[in-house]
Amino acid sequence: MTDCHKYREMISAIIDGELSENERKLLSDHLAGCEQCSRLLVELREQRNLFSNHTKATLPLAIENVILDKTSSRSPRRTPIGKFISSSYLIPKPVAWVAGALIIALAVFDLLLPAFRESDSSGYGTTQFYPQKIQKVIITDKDIVKTQTYSEKNNL
């Protein structure tokens, strides 16, 4: 019965299946010659078997509901599109902010553009995005005669 303490810790560990193969062999050799340690192994196994009869306590429903209510009321609601985007990509926040600002700026510009066009055509605005110059072209008989003369001269 030399150095039983070392083996006693191993007895506790073997019950939990936490011994290496080498330690297992050492303990087995020791138990073969030590009645006290063999008895301890039996006792600790019996003690452990008692724990197998326990039933687990379950969290009362009232407390469960309190936790779920508290957490769901503090969670921001997400639209399906927002959820899809955020679940698909991981992007730095500054990039997201710049991209968002650009989209808003483009949208605002696109909305205001028709208003500028309308103000210009009605004559009230001073800004001209699309200057339009209309010329009236009048063809007279004189022009036709000139064309005929030119054709005759050149034997066309």
Binding site: L68, T71, R78, S86, K93
Partner: peptide, 17 residues
């Protein structure tokens, strides 16, 4: 720094809960 992903929302919490 990072935009949060859906993995860290309430549904993930509920699974662990």
């Amino acid at each position: 720094f990072w935009v949060a992903r859906s993995g860290s929302d309430h549904s993930d919490f509920c699974i662990h809960f």
